[in-house]
């Protein structure tokens, strides 16, 4: 049934606006000498639009009429959020590679891109993943306490919280870039990235459990 729910979310609940924000967020990595973690804030704006649109489309009522569990409804909505985040990450990763391997041949760009402390690294992606997960952890369980209500407070709190965290992620990434020893730098960079993935998976799982628990209590 999870496959059907994913299909439903992608076909009915993934809006062009969310995709545009995800693509813009990812493409912003290409901007020279720009803190890329900040670009990911656009991605979260794309997630915020899912909920009011779902309300307008009576998505909750439609989903609850289907022969699926309430926890599956939560799974679907969390899936579409994570999908947008990962899509932006994937585009961002491709853009980061382009920055390293293509832009260095462009006149006047090489030095800036390679040597800046704000150059993209693995850490910034790992830490941004954690920021995304914390955003989801604030937004989803709060939303599922009363999914038929307009969502301003959870949207704002999760968005501003994530903005702060993405700023911190950028700082952490810069710190890794300052390490002089290339081997040590790579080890720390990859470790932060791996830790980011593990923490993100764990937080997403907690988000799912808490959201499903809150939604179980809801009467429509």
């Amino acid at each position: 049934m999870k496959k059907q729910i994913m299909k439903k979310e992608l076909k009915l609940c993934l809006y062009g606006q969310s995709l545009v924000f995800a693509i813009i967020g990812g493409l912003c990595v290409l901007i020279p000498n720009w803190p890329i973690a900040v670009a990911f804030i656009y991605v979260l704006s794309g997630i915020s639009v899912i909920f009011p649109r779902a309300l307008a489309n009576r998505d909750i009522e439609y989903s609850l009429i289907l022969p699926i569990k309430k926890s599956d409804v939560v799974f679907g909505k969390l899936f579409v959020g994570v999908f947008i985040e990962l899509l932006a990450m994937a585009i961002g990763a491709v853009c980061a590679l382009l920055k390293f391997y293509v832009f260095k041949f462009l006149p006047g760009e090489g030095e800036d891109v390679y040597n800046s402390v704000i150059a993209p690294n693995f850490s910034v992606f790992g830490l941004a993943l954690v920021a995304f997960s914390i955003h989801n952890l604030i937004l989803y369980p709060w939303y599922y306490k009363d999914p038929l209500k307009k969502l301003t407070a959870p949207q704002l709190v999760s968005l501003f919280g994530a903005m702060f965290l993405l700023g911190a992620a950028q700082g952490g990434s810069c710190f890794v870039n300052l390490i002089q020893d290339p081997t040590l730098k790579l080890i720390i960079d990859l470790s932060v990235f791996a830790a980011g993935i593990v923490i993100s998976i764990l937080l997403t799982w907690i988000t799912y459990i808490l959201s499903a628990k809150n939604f179980e209590k809801v009467s429509i």
């Binding site: 009915l12 489309n57 009576r58 998505d59 009522e61 439609y62």
Partner: peptide
């Protein structure tokens, strides 16, 4: 009166 996904 239910109208799910009116634009679909």
């Amino acid at each position: 009166e239910a109208e799910y996904y009116p634009n679909s």
